[in-house]
Computed example of a mutant assay.
Amino acid sequence: MIDKPSSSFSLENSDCVYADYNATAPISENVKKRVFEVLSKQTLNPSSLHRKGQETRKILQDARDIVHSTIGIPNDKEIVFTSGATEANNLIMRGIKGYQHVISAIEHPSILNSAYKPHIIPVNPEGVVDLSELEQILSKLEGNRAIVSVMMANNETGVIQPIKAIVEIAHKFGAICHTDAAQSVGKIEVNMEDLGVDLLTLSAHKFGGIAGSGVLVFDKKLMIEPIIVGGGQEKGLRGGTENIVAIAGLSAALQDIPDLLSKIDEIWGLRDQLECELLNLVSDIKIFGKASKRLPNTSFIYMPRVKSDVQLMNFDLDNIAVSNGSACSSGKVELSHVLLAMGATKEQAECSIRISIGPGTKSRDIKKIVDCWYNVYKRSTVI
């Protein structure tokens, strides 16, 4: 085991530097413990009327209560468990009928690919949505029902969006507002009531839970049609027996949030150390969104003239896990739509990687990342 921080997160391979937290966070020890507890019950159908079924229903309700209190959900909102933020986002875009879709140019593919003929809000070169453009779009749509969907923080650059201002503009024009908070929970404070959004989605495996569980929170007044039909589970919006094991893991991960947030300053310092050392070594690199408010753990870095797949291969050989921030399901590397929306050149988009650290990251890990990055740069750019 690596040196274990005071949080409940650890990685088993001491030789590995894990710097891909935005792809998935290590499963927390508390989540593992809770999952094993729930698995030991063996029969887990909350729809059953017998005692075993009712015991399982209590697990489900307790998890709902924990989501409600941890994310600051107002009483006029409903909670539905899904298989993740992707399904929750699809349920919004495809299940709420008769609304125009207004989305940012940097949304996750689960929004981009499920929205119908969306109106695209551009972003500035630092990755922040253009509020004046949003206002213009909504003014042209006035008289039409609209959903505005802007992610709370970008999964590639970490840039945090001005959600409160977006909500204010959306509501001024009678639109409803959704934010995908998958990358934000556990990294920054997330309080739905404070944000003022009408809908919010999140995914457990981004903050220490296990993949297979997410949440959609929505205003009770909204009419949503299910995209998965079945026995009427989850208020009729998500047919099929609930994944109690993953949901219990999600609730345990949410209980780790205060501990995760207590590490923000430390993680922020390590991220700044990483960026400062790289900038001192190579002056013509670019860190996307650096001038914007960002998640404390995320750096999307351009290495001049060195393709991202070359970088990733060398990092992997050095037992360091990082990401290019964008890959389709076939495994073919694609140019980041996020970077292109920010005005990056094709060469910059081809030569950038995302480094996303977390509670398990140590100063020595940053040194190893910097050393590997610089060695790759020197080897690959020798004339």
Score class of each variant (00 low, 15 high):
243 N>A: 03
346 K>Q: 10
231 G>D: 14
111 I>E: 02
297 N>V: 03
229 V>Q: 10
77 K>V: 06
99 Y>G: 04
49 L>P: 01
70 T>V: 07
284 D>W: 13
220 K>Y: 03
293 K>M: 09
38 V>Q: 00
369 I>Y: 04
36 F>A: 10
182 A>H: 11
25 A>G: 01
180 D>C: 13
247 I>Y: 00
108 H>Y: 13
224 I>R: 08
11 L>K: 14
5 P>T: 01
319 N>P: 02
92 I>G: 02
160 I>Y: 04
282 V>E: 05
230 G>R: 14
159 V>N: 02
317 L>Q: 13
151 M>Q: 14
21 Y>E: 00
189 E>D: 12
171 H>R: 13
327 A>T: 11
83 S>K: 15
86 T>V: 09
177 C>Q: 07
343 G>I: 06
374 Y>Q: 07
278 L>E: 00
185 V>Y: 09
158 G>V: 00
269 G>F: 13
229 V>Y: 08
289 G>F: 05
319 N>M: 11
96 I>C: 06
110 S>H: 02
178 H>N: 05
209 G>T: 00
59 I>W: 12
179 T>F: 08
349 A>E: 01
128 V>Q: 02
316 D>K: 12
39 L>T: 02
161 Q>F: 13
144 N>K: 14
85 A>T: 13
129 V>P: 07
59 I>R: 10
247 I>R: 03
47 S>K: 15
204 A>I: 00
80 V>F: 03
376 V>F: 08
310 V>E: 01
205 H>G: 03
207 F>K: 12
150 V>R: 06
13 N>E: 07
308 S>D: 05
293 K>V: 14
355 I>H: 03
337 H>V: 15
326 S>Q: 09
15 D>P: 02
49 L>Y: 10
312 L>Q: 08
27 I>V: 14
17 V>C: 06
109 P>S: 07
96 I>G: 03
36 F>V: 12
202 L>C: 15
312 L>P: 00
43 T>C: 04
180 D>F: 10
214 G>I: 13
339 L>F: 14
61 Q>S: 09
63 A>C: 04
17 V>E: 01
147 I>C: 03
357 I>V: 13
41 K>C: 00
95 G>M: 05
209 G>D: 01
105 A>G: 05
149 S>T: 12
42 Q>A: 10
186 G>H: 08
207 F>M: 04
183 Q>W: 08
336 S>W: 03
378 K>E: 10
295 L>A: 06
352 S>K: 04
231 G>E: 07
100 Q>F: 05
96 I>N: 04
170 A>T: 02
88 A>W: 06
237 L>C: 08
251 S>G: 00
198 D>M: 14
64 R>S: 06
322 V>G: 01
328 C>P: 01
117 K>H: 12
232 G>I: 09
135 E>M: 12
